[in-house]
C-alpha cells in the first residue's frame, strides 16, 4: 500500500515538475504575451495541482490534506481570474 502511495506520489510530482519546466520554457520562448500567458496558466494549474496530488498521500492528517487542496484551489482561482483579466487587457491594448 505504502509502495503504491509512493508510486502515485512519484508519478504526480514528476509530472508536476515537468509542467513547471514546460511553463517556464513557454514563458521564455513563446513569441507574444498572450501565448506566454497560456503557458503560465498551464504551470499554475497543472504543475501545482500535480504536486499537491502527489503530496496528499503523504499528508499526516485529513486537515493537512484539506489545506493542500485549498492551496491549489486558491492558486487555480487566482490564476484563472487574472489570466482572463490580463488576456482582456492585452486584447484591449492591441485594438
Amino acid at each position: 500500500m505504502s509502495f503504491l502511495a509512493d508510486l502515485v506520489s512519484l508519478a504526480a510530482i514528476g509530472a508536476g515538475v515537468f509542467f513547471f519546466i514546460a511553463g517556464t520554457v513557454g514563458l521564455l520562448r513563446f513569441p507574444d504575451s498572450l501565448t506566454r500567458l497560456h503557458a503560465l496558466s498551464k504551470a499554475d494549474n497543472l504543475g501545482l495541482g500535480l504536486i499537491v496530488l502527489g503530496l496528499i498521500p503523504r499528508a499526516e492528517n485529513p486537515l493537512a490534506a484539506f489545506k493542500l487542496v485549498v492551496v491549489w484551489a486558491l492558486v487555480l482561482l487566482s490564476g484563472a481570474s487574472t489570466a482572463q483579466l490580463i488576456g482582456r487587457a492585452l486584447r484591449r491594448g492591441r485594438e
Partner: peptide, 13 residues
C-alpha cells in the same frame, strides 16, 4: 508580472 506569478506558484510548490 507573469514571471512573478510563475515564481509565486513555483515557490508554493
Amino acid at each position: 508580472l507573469m514571471a512573478v506569478q510563475l515564481l509565486g506558484t513555483g515557490g508554493i510548490a
